[in-house]
């Protein structure tokens, strides 16, 4: 049985190779791509926030679902955070409020999916629409909520602009989320059971595990992770812009599925998702620096997703794993 491990190597190689290839390509073609400042900007601007949302998505996909409302959780977190700071609450408390705001979105999804039994795709699509309307109602039809520059506490700016030992805080937070998520998904009972739910839910039920509880926990976790992004984003730009979180949605889904090629069995996994986000980030930044028309960036991203998925799929098929 040498073929599967060989093909598995190839499938994993596809993602790493694609990353190395685009990196080399832009190093050669895009002026300034290799500069330290640019690479740091890739990490902070193109990687950190998307990585957190994509990891949230990885949990949903792992459990056999999807969460189209991750952006809604980002927005609700951002709105709650800004509102509480404006109301004069301590920043730490306001941040907790932000996380709770995001978690609320997950709770709503949990009721729809685990309680009523609506499919995750439709349930979270509904939440996406409802969330957008709620935000418009809360903001007089979608007006941004600014924090007056004078009134912003220093602690508030720290999440987005601070640094520890020279490392930007957003990157540190992302690293913590990545490490935590990796442990939870790959090494804990919850992660294992969520994975089993995604692979064959009825076996989970027939094994005496409480399926609705696991599903509900998954969607609350997804939204809570996404809510972290709401905090960082708000701290960075000191404004809440309604429905802005949805910008992460498609890239998060793309990165998660690109990441599945990194697993021998094609399962969603945290390291794969991180590599997927890096790949998308490098491509976006590189295309921008190459002076390519903005609209061509999307084409590049799409082609990239196709090719990585195709190679990964073909390899697993050759190994008889599909």
């Amino acid at each position: 049985m040498a073929l599967p491990s060989f093909a598995h190597g190839l499938a994993r190689y596809a993602l790493v190779a694609a990353l190395a290839a685009v990196f080399a390509l832009f190093a050669a073609l895009a002026p300034g791509f290799l500069s330290g400042a640019n690479l740091l900007s890739v990490l902070v601007n193109n990687f950190a926030l998307l990585a957190i949302v994509a990891i949230a998505m990885t949990f949903a996909v792992s459990a056999g679902g999807i969460d189209l409302s991750v952006g809604t959780a980002v927005d609700f977190s951002s709105f709650a955070f800004v509102s509480l700071v404006l109301a004069g609450q301590p920043v730490a408390l306001a941040a907790l409020g932000g996380l709770a705001g995001g978690a609320l979105v997950g709770l709503f999804n949990a009721v729809l999916i685990a309680g009523i039994g609506i499919s995750p795709f439709l349930a979270t699509l509904g939440t996406l629409f409802v969330g957008r309307s709620v935000q418009q109602l809360l903001t007089n039809g979608g007006n941004p909520v600014y924090l007056p520059p004078a009134g912003v506490p220093e602690a508030f700016r720290f999440l987005g602009h601070g640094a520890l030992a020279g490392i930007p805080v957003p990157l540190i937070v992302t690293a913590l989320v990545v490490a935590g998520a990796w442990v939870v998904l790959a090494r804990t009972r919850f992660g294992r059971v969520a994975l089993a739910t995604g692979i064959q839910a009825s076996v989970v039920r027939y094994s005496g595990l409480r399926l609705p509880r696991i599903t509900a926990a998954t969607y609350v976790l997804v939204s809570t992770i996404a809510a972290v992004v709401g905090l960082i984003l708000t701290s960075t730009v000191t404004v809440y812009i309604p429905s802005s979180g949805n910008a992460f949605l498609l890239n998060a889904i793309g990165a998660t599925f690109i990441g599945t090629t990194f697993d021998p069995h094609g399962r969603p996994n945290v390291p794969g998702t991180v590599l997927g986000v890096l790949l998308l980030g490098v491509v976006a930044n590189g295309l921008l620096l190459s002076g390519l028309n903005f609209y061509w960036q999307q084409v590049g991203t799409g082609l990239l997703i196709f090719s990585v998925l195709a190679i990964g799929f073909a390899n697993r098929k050759a190994a008889g794993r599909v």
Binding site: T188, R189, R192, V193, L195, A196, I199, Q200, S202, V203, V204, R205, Y206, S207, G208, L209, H265
Partner: peptide, 23 residues
């Protein structure tokens, strides 16, 4: 459909109902 998860490994299936013992 209900007895074993075909796309989980032998280990993952064997311990699915008894993960408490190992974690």
């Amino acid at each position: 459909r209900d007895g074993v998860a075909l796309d989980l490994t032998v280990t993952e299936n064997t311990t699915l109902a008894s993960l408490d013992r190992f974690s």
